[in-house]
Simulated assay, not measured.
Amino acid sequence: MTDEHNHEHQYRKDIINRLARVEGHLRSVKEMAISGRQCPDILLQIAAVQKALDGAAKLLLKDHLENCVVDAVHHGNEKNIIEELNAAIDSYIR
């Protein structure tokens, strides 16, 4: 995968903010488990973390399509970017 991005990422700040909230939420879920909270309560919060992660992933995919893929097409590099996207999707959705 390429490490350089010579184009703008419109949603990067929002993605980072979402991931920071997920990180905080996950720490809270861990504390719930440590303190012996009820299993259904913990499972509900784990589901909320998963949904939040899915939301961040969806926004990241949107950002990638709107910016990276468009930039690659403009620069004649669509084959590589599509291969990278397919590999990422295969890793994310199993």
Rank of each mutant, 00 (worst) to 15 (best):
M1V: 05
T2C: 08
E4A: 14
E4R: 15
N6V: 10
H7L: 02
H9R: 05
Q10M: 08
Y11S: 11
Y11L: 10
D14C: 01
I15K: 01
N17I: 05
N17Q: 12
R18F: 01
R18D: 01
A20G: 10
V22W: 02
G24K: 00
H25I: 03
R27A: 06
V29F: 01
K30S: 11
A33V: 09
I34N: 10
I34G: 08
I34P: 04
G36W: 00
G36L: 00
Q38C: 06
C39Q: 09
C39K: 07
D41C: 05
I42W: 08
L43E: 07
Q45K: 13
A47Y: 14
Q50F: 03
K51M: 10
K51A: 12
A52F: 00
A52Q: 02
L53I: 09
D54K: 05
A56G: 04
A56M: 03
A56Y: 02
K58G: 10
K58I: 05
L59C: 09
L59I: 03
L60G: 02
L60S: 01
L60R: 00
K62M: 11
K62P: 05
K62F: 04
D63N: 07
D63P: 07
D63V: 08
D63A: 05
H64F: 03
H64Y: 04
L65A: 08
L65F: 12
N67G: 13
N67F: 07
V69P: 01
D71I: 07
D71G: 06
A72I: 06
V73F: 11
H75N: 15
H75D: 02
G76K: 09
E78C: 11
E78I: 12
K79E: 13
N80E: 15
I81H: 12
I81T: 10
I82C: 14
E83A: 02
E84R: 05
E84M: 09
L85W: 02
A87C: 05
A87W: 11
A87Y: 11
A88G: 08
A88K: 12
A88F: 10
A88Q: 13
I89S: 02
D90R: 11
S91K: 14
I93S: 04
R94W: 13
